[in-house]
């Protein structure tokens, strides 16, 4: 799972009102090359929750994502490359996602979060 997906995921346990962002517990990360496409980055940018993206990046050891951003930065090639790398190239392979409200742990194995809810959570 990449931070792109992490930024969209939210815990939907019954009754939870603030299920975003899930915090990340890292056991193993992996890096895989992805096609660099500035248009995609500019297009997805307004849909991202930047603070959550920044915090998630820090939690997986990527410290070069600025905390504050503005759209003019989307013209800066160097910024776009870091953005691209953190959003699309680093994968959480083993670890967990944790609901900010309930502390419920969703395990991540082989890069796949298991988001199945227990009967009493639906």
């Amino acid at each position: 799972m990449r931070l792109l997906t992490h930024n969209m995921l939210s815990c939907n346990i019954k009754g939870v009102t603030k299920g975003f962002p899930l915090s990340i517990e890292v056991q193993r990360l992996d890096t895989k090359d992805a096609d660099f496409n500035p248009d995609f980055l500019r297009n997805i940018f307004p849909k991202l929750e930047w603070k959550a993206f920044h915090d998630a990046a820090v939690s997986i050891g990527l410290n070069d994502i600025p905390e504050q951003v503005d759209p003019t930065m989307l013209e800066d090639h160097e910024f776009l490359q870091k953005f691209h790398h953190a959003l699309l190239e680093v994968h959480l392979e083993e670890g967990a996602l944790i609901c900010p409200e309930t502390g419920r742990r969703f395990p991540v194995t082989k890069g796949v979060p298991n988001m199945l809810l227990h009967e009493d959570e639906v």
Binding site: L9, N12, E49, V112, N114, M115, V122
Partner: peptide, 28 residues
């Protein structure tokens, strides 16, 4: 999902039951 991993698909995968609702942020 295991087969999808074997095929090395490019999308991110989630084990999830759609009948429990989809856990994504609004408008994402």
């Amino acid at each position: 999902i295991d087969i999808a991993l074997e095929r090395e698909v490019d999308g991110d995968l989630l084990v999830s039951d759609i009948g429990q609702g989809l856990g994504f942020r609004p408008g994402s």
